[in-house]
Design a protein around this nucleic acid. Structure first.
Lengths: 337, 337
DNA sequence: ACTTGGCACTCGGGAACACCGAGTGCTAGT
DNA sequence: ACTAGCACTCGGTGTTCCCGAGTGCCAAGT
């Protein structure tokens, strides 16, 4: 049904349309890409492609424009991820190397990606669930309050102020801290609930109310932060582009953590580090946009996802290259620290 | 030069233009606001106002539009801050009361303000300089690494991983922590450098390299975070409005911490909690936008600033009311915690 | 059986044009 | 000092016309 030349025509249409933002006609196509055939032939092929739903025309007697289905075929079979230039690689490396803590890594990553792709970049904070406890700290603030600080192996820090049900001296707090650390140090966060389940019973009765209070806050912290924080950058890059769904909707989605999360998508269980591309109507929300995303993280344990969001009319090979490269570098950085 | 009626005309023009977004003519003006005079009289007044530069006409034979100078006069002398409704107050209160930590307070505040004003809200994190140290914590991660955690009285937490120049046992770390806390607890952050200056000399020589390393990181943390973090929300509200300077510029400025900081402006030394209004060309950057901002913080010590950014054609009385109210509530919340 | 040149057809978009009406400035009259 | 009247301006809208890029189809060529 679709011989090689038809595919070549589709590829040419996508490439031209992406670079010019104008419907592309048979004549220009036959010229610019040396297809060795006449415009009339191209027209026949285009008619076939349109029949199959890969391209469409905005109005009669205008050029053709790829449909979502067309982009899909292009991404799957007609394009190759374009690697970054050496200069770009070096820039990434030096820019990310300067980060001082986890916050900084994430912030730099999202900005870098936005600048590199000239789209909106989205980065999910490394998820807690796969992390392990590196340290639990109880800091007495005054005799009725302590601050709980939870430090994970990814460098993430969660803190909460806890109001205690009774006055507790610092030495008891110190003891509790020791107990907690002995119990939790190095354990996966998802195991914490079961590990602390019998803790009150192993302690003297007078400590139990205090411990119960602290543990409830600890567990709450784990649960609440389970749906992860997401940041974005490069919203200014939306200014030029036009979206079928209004610009307003896109901006609203960006500020809505939950929506953004859904857009970034789930890591497919088997190949978490693969590039995911969602084109236009394939998206759960924001039908007018495309999303290129991938998981990142050190080696076998994927931490979270990052990617970019832009109009369906996007340079997929370049964008995919940038996303992949940035994911690799940030994984490296995180693994090293 | 400007009698009462001319001022009334200016007020009417501003109000009508803000609500309709269309140049306002003499006839409509004379009708809608019962000025008891004929359109012709209004025209004379308008001519005078235009002469003085308070209004202008987009083209000959169109209605009049306020200039920046006109808005300025309106804000200074012709309008009163509009208080929020009881329902709005209650909504603010309950929404902010649910916050669990400082991050949460800031996030909720900025969203609240964006929703309330239907503009872009901007909130600066409480500044460190005026804060005091509540606790310094040194957490051993392994024998060559510790994590420094700095907790301030505003609930803010800064953390850094420190690579030590030598292997140090946990007991020495614990000792150092005690020394640091004895030295710094309750002190203003700006005093920290002088307070720790002679610390190495007061300790046994073998501890000095370690202490020096830790202190250098501590000081660096204070300096780096000196220029404060700023967050915004409600970018979607920009979608409708039109800016003389392109939408792109506005979005870029929002993502640029430094610019945003400049826009929020300095707290005027004498009345930090006063509302600041910068209209159009009065702004350092982004000449096409207006900014309504104010300081916030518990009572006498102002912590930081918050405000909204929008088109010059903005409902100033309502916006000012919302900004003022939110600032008060968030100050209250922060003082209580 | 595919390709190609030719040809009639379609329509979006821009230019030219006229018209309407809101709005103005000015002057003379109250 | 205010008002009524009047001539004038000019942006916006609707109409018309035309051009040209682009198409679909058909018949001829390889």
């Amino acid at each position: 049904m679709l011989d090689d030349r038809k595919l070549a025509v589709l590829r040419a249409i996508v490439e031209d349309y992406v670079s010019t933002n104008e419907p592309v006609g048979s004549k220009a196509l036959a010229e610019r890409h040396n297809l060795k055939v006449s415009p009339a032939t191209v027209r026949n092929d285009m008619a076939a492609l349109e029949e199959e739903g890969y391209i469409t025309q905005p109005h009669t007697s205008a050029g053709r424009v790829p449909t979502d289905k067309g982009y899909r075929l292009f991404v799957d079979r007609l394009s190759q991820v374009k690697p970054l230039s050496a200069a770009e690689r070096r820039a990434i490396e030096t820019f990310l190397a300067g980060a001082v803590d986890l916050d900084d890594v994430v912030t730099r990553t999202v900005r870098l990606l936005a600048q590199l792709t000239r789209q909106v970049a989205v980065v999910q904070y490394p998820t807690l669930t796969r992390s392990t406890v590196r340290h639990v700290e109880l800091v007495p603030l005054n005799d009725r309050r302590v601050m709980l600080v939870l430090i994970t192996n990814t460098g993430r820090v969660e803190q909460r102020v806890i109001e205690l049900p009774e006055v507790v001296e610092d030495t008891r707090i110190a003891h509790l801290r020791a107990v907690l650390n002995a119990c939790l140090d190095g354990c996966g966060l998802s195991n914490v609930p079961e590990l602390v389940a019998d803790l009150p019973e192993r302690l003297p009765p007078e400590d139990r109310p205090v411990v119960a209070t602290i543990l409830s806050v600890l567990l709450e912290t784990l649960v609440e932060r389970h749906d992860e924080k997401i940041v974005f950058a490069g919203a200014a890059n939306l200014a030029g582009a036009d979206f079928s769904t209004g610009l307003r909707d896109v901006l609203e989605a960006l500020e809505e953590q939950v929506v953004l999360m859904r857009l970034l998508g789930e890591t497919s269980a088997d190949t978490p580090s693969a590039l995911t591309v969602r084109i236009g109507s394939e998206n759960p929300y924001l039908r007018g946009t495309s999303i290129v995303a991938t998981g990142y993280g050190s080696g076998d344990n994927q931490l979270a996802r990052l990617g970019v969001l832009g109009p369906t009319r996007m340079d997929y090979p370049v964008t995919m290259g940038a996303v992949r490269a940035v994911a690799r570098y940030v994984s490296q950085i995180l693994a090293a620290s």
